[in-house]
């Protein structure tokens, strides 16, 4: 394990501490809970608060999206492990400006349970809470069981849309509706070329044989649709585009937002090689790329691989996308 770590048990606290030092102009740590990161802009009286949270090891997600017109508070879990109910609860309490709180997170068992418990705790305080559960990962369950699908990089679009909506002073149902529409309009796929190692465990979480790739891999190495021979980048890009677009029914002329994220150890130039073909392929299908992000936006430690997310846009989503954000990651 060739890594920059101290005691593996301290890695999350040290990450959060370094992160807040590096971005002290945008974020701070919660007064009493070191596993909650807050935007300097929160709470805002009369505005809906936006909360997310998830396991660590996906940096810049989740903490990097705390900021102005984005997420107000982030609950921070151990590596690849849901934050505690207490952290979700503390996050919720910190961002409540009297207009309710939108908790926007990914569909994982631990997160579902911890948010459920946090919600109970916060209800006792009289805080109105609504949740949206991201489930954009198309390979994690068939379309007929969308509620079983995991949430992946589409969460970034969900946060951006919801943060923008909340910044206009919209009421909670409108913010929730926007977030729900954003994630409903998202489809994502991951392709894994190499595994990652949890420092406490010390050996790779899973194997990807040399010359192979895992199509449909999850953000923690969850097995995908199939293992196949590693193909040229252009063919992988084509497969990714086909898989996400076949799960969507989009009319010709639809405008889309595209996010290509590295999983941590993929050279950045290769993300552009992929994106080059991805945009070509999307446009060849009669869609129009209106907005795009290419980089390490949602990683999985040092996993080699990339994800593609396509979100179908309408005028409302477009105007939300256009709202400026100031968070460490976006």
């Amino acid at each position: 394990m060739q890594r920059f770590i101290n005691d593996p048990d301290d890695i999350v606290d040290e990450t959060v501490a370094g992160f807040v030092r590096a971005h002290h102009n945008m974020v701070r740590i919660h007064d009493t809970n070191p596993r909650v990161v807050l935007s300097h802009t929160t709470p805002k009286i009369g505005h809906v608060g936006i909360v997310t949270g998830g396991g660590s090891g996906h940096e810049p997600a989740f903490i990097g999206y705390a900021g102005k017109n984005m997420v107000d508070a982030v609950a921070v879990g151990e590596l690849f492990s849901s934050p505690t109910a207490k952290s979700f609860y503390d996050a919720i309490k910190s961002v409540d400006g009297g207009a309710g709180v939108a908790v926007l997170y990914g569909n994982y068992a631990g997160d579902n349970m911890n948010v459920k418990m946090a919600r109970k705790m916060a209800k006792k305080d009289g805080i109105t809470i609504e949740t949206v559960v991201a489930n954009d990962d198309v390979c994690s369950a068939p379309a007929s069981e969308r509620e079983k699908r995991r949430g992946v990089a589409g969460e970034i679009f969900m946060w951006k849309i919801a943060g923008a909506k909340a910044s206009t002073g919209a009421p909670l149902p409108d913010v929730i509706a926007a977030a729900q529409k954003a994630i409903d309009n998202c489809r994502s796929i991951g392709v894994g070329l190499g595994p990652c190692t949890l420092p406490q465990v010390g050996h790779p979480n899973f194997e990807i044989a040399s010359g192979k790739m895992e199509v449909g891999i999850g953000h923690h190495g969850e097995p995908g649709l199939r293992v196949e021979n590693l193909k040229p980048a252009n063919q992988i890009a084509e497969d990714m585009v086909r898989t996400v677009l076949e799960d969507h029914t989009l009319l010709k002329g639809t405008e889309v937002a595209v996010l290509v994220s590295g999983l941590g150890a993929t050279p950045i130039n290769e993300l552009y090689v992929l994106y080059n073909r991805i945009e070509q392929q999307i446009e060849a299908r009669g869609l129009k790329v209106h907005f795009q992000l290419v980089g390490n936006y949602f990683t999985s430690l040092e996993m080699v691989g990339a994800t593609l997310t396509v979100m179908a846009l309408d005028d409302d989503l477009k105007s939300c996308l256009a709202v400026e954000t100031a968070s460490p990651a976006l």
Partner: peptide, 14 residues
């Protein structure tokens, strides 16, 4: 378990 561990074990065993 519930306040410091999180994950699935926090709520389940918690």
């Amino acid at each position: 378990l519930m306040g410091e561990i999180g994950g699935s074990m926090g709520p389940l065993y918690g």
